[in-house]
Nucleic acid binder design. Sequence first.
DNA 1: ACAATTATTGCAATCGGTTGCGTAAAAATA
DNA 2: TATTTTTACGCAACCGATTGCAATAATTGT
Lengths: 342, 342
Amino acid sequence: MEENKHVTIYDIAERLNLATSTISRALKDHHTISDKTIKKVKKTAEEMGFVPNTLAAGLRGNKTKTIGVLIPTVTQPFLSSLISGIEITAQKSDYTVIIMQSHDSYEEEVNMAKSLYSNRVSGVICSLAMETRDTAHFHQFSNNNIPLVFVDRVPKDYNTFRVVIDNFTAGYKATKHLIEQGCVRIAHITAGSELGNLYSERKRGYIEALKDHNVEIDEKLIINLNSVTYEDGVKASNALFDLDPIPDGLFAPGDILAVSAVQTAKKRGIKVPEEFKVIGFNNDPISQIIDPNLSTITHPAEKMGKAAAEIIIKNLKSSKNDDAKEITFLNTEVLARESTQK
Amino acid sequence: MEENKHVTIYDIAERLNLATSTISRALKDHHTISDKTIKKVKKTAEEMGFVPNTLAAGLRGNKTKTIGVLIPTVTQPFLSSLISGIEITAQKSDYTVIIMQSHDSYEEEVNMAKSLYSNRVSGVICSLAMETRDTAHFHQFSNNNIPLVFVDRVPKDYNTFRVVIDNFTAGYKATKHLIEQGCVRIAHITAGSELGNLYSERKRGYIEALKDHNVEIDEKLIINLNSVTYEDGVKASNALFDLDPIPDGLFAPGDILAVSAVQTAKKRGIKVPEEFKVIGFNNDPISQIIDPNLSTITHPAEKMGKAAAEIIIKNLKSSKNDDAKEITFLNTEVLARESTQK
DNA sequence: ACAATTATTGCAATCGGTTGCGTAAAAATA
DNA sequence: TATTTTTACGCAACCGATTGCAATAATTGT
């Protein structure tokens, strides 16, 4: 087995009796290099199996064409689609994507932020960990002019780019849909997270829709969770079904919760949608698998990923230090399926 | 806004009147540096907000503590769990993970392999693209002593590490389970991919199980697909249900296919599992959502990711050039749920 | 034919940690 | 006290691509 050393521009330079500066420029079609030389260099580089060393270029230029992604986990459908979107856009502009999972832990998020900084990423896309209450660990990016985009779970008071959906409107739409389908006792499950205020926004939309349509707001129908797992959903659902009378509708701010409600209802002999209508959130794959198919709110994950990546790349190209860090709102829609049919 | 330049060891050295070499060594507890100096340096580094530049270290040492992951997509549950496993293990040893999606395209896979090499990753974990028939683009890693681990969809004839399940045995088990549940006309869906021979292996297991249990092998019951999408599954299922008599069992080598079969059956009024039993593969989340719950074969994605990452890290520590590139087989099990009940 | 451009290429510093080797100072030994 | 051994730290080259500036060669203009 050969101990192939990496081929460098020095090797090419030596072979062709040229300076490394010429090689470097030729490889990127610099206008001061003659066409013949460019062709010759490229051909030789190809023959010798030259692959540029990103590290060297990054060190010298202090930029890496790398986007760091810091998210709670890659296994949630929404987040893996988000990554997919980021990756697709990044690839088009020849950017590399580094992914780190915070597992919803504040401590890990802090560490990984440092690690991304250490890797001198060109930009950062982040969806906050559940635990996170403080965003000081992102100052290192802001302070060094590294574009930072928060997605979905975003801090409220941080002057940087944000790509989100309008959770209030989405919650409003979902609830309104249930009302239109005839529900009058509409339950809601929410979760307490202060920084990423998306659940509270959805709840606000829920409340507002009830008010606007003169539907009674009953605090007993609102269940507050600390996490949004399937098991939590089952508990919440059982609590709702223990009420008398049971609610006739549920707006669950996530498809997993909605599915757990549907399945719990089935187990208890409650018919969905006849006796109990459910609308979820996210349009996860499971929403089309469950019987009855789940009505839900679309959550344009891939689009959000693309938008976030585009913001970073655009911001990197024109390095004008706009202080206008806009917030991008993407649209959501009600997907009316079987679980809310009259 | 301050134009904060990155703090370097030079800055620390200047502040403390020490050499950069001393700083560098102190920061990593080198034994030739006195405890007092180490403490002083670390304290100052902390105060000044020093974050090491990974690029510089990587360039000098020609190693980056980075694992490159090259997979078809991140959105399949199996693959996102695989990533999760890789990431968890990598993080423990302070490795960074770079993820690239080939989207099952050979051309993209070639490009991204080059990109990973360009980033001087320390090791590579790959699950091959469907399209890939040729693995020459991985030689750059093998030739340069960069550990390469193929996972799940692995080439047959490449002397490197592999982490897989025993697809033959898994197929055998799945089929045997159907036989035990009373099926006698067992259908199978397979897909033609030559390099990643996992579907053909599963099929081999299917055939062998039928033989061993004296169940007739009927070529009409075996459907060959080019891809394994939900839509393909519907087509295949319809083809099976157009037969007379229809099969009484199906071993689908993926939960998506299995689910499509269950749903197609329902639409056509065929009762699962009474008239038609189905077993899938992977234990995707949807398998527990669909009604009836899907029997399936476990596919230990996270474990495989961890195993792959461990192989790389271990191999990097002890840089002995073992020519023994072992194949790691992980275990799979039948999960008997409702869709195959007698 | 000579000056003025323009087209090409080379030189050398630079990015920021890392590390082999050398040396001065302190401690141990004779 | 003289000498050997440790201990602690500095010097400077190095990794490989990039880039401002200088320099040489080719081309154009008068």
